[in-house]
Amino acid sequence: MQITKELVNYLEALGRIELTDEQRASSEKDLQDILSYIDTLNELDTSNVEPLSHSFPVTNVFREDEVRPSTDRELILENAPEKTDACFMVPKTVE
């Protein structure tokens, strides 16, 4: 897969981040290197192998539907960079 300038811009938009031109250029190169490296895996023929999503042979891990106390709000909000007494505060999401 070819990493292009456009693709970097697109990923930037999807990730809601803003890069400098310098970072864009280095990201383009880094991402290309990473993908090329991963491409070596494609040399192996896996057409007859089921994709693996879980590495442990475990199924059906359930919890009973019983209410447990929630966490103190103060604690939940503690690490938030911006907050009110009751809510997380984020930059306005609609204009």
């Binding site: 019983e66 447990r68 929630s70 709000r73 939940i76 909000l77």
Partner: peptide
């Protein structure tokens, strides 16, 4: 209308003060 959320034991009850039906998992 289960009593608790899908992945944690927080209540699903409607209403409640903001962020009081929240734990480490669902946040």
């Amino acid at each position: 209308s289960t009593k608790t959320k899908i992945f944690c034991g927080c209540t699903t009850e409607f209403g409640g003060e903001p962020n009081t039906h929240v734990c480490e998992i669902c946040s």
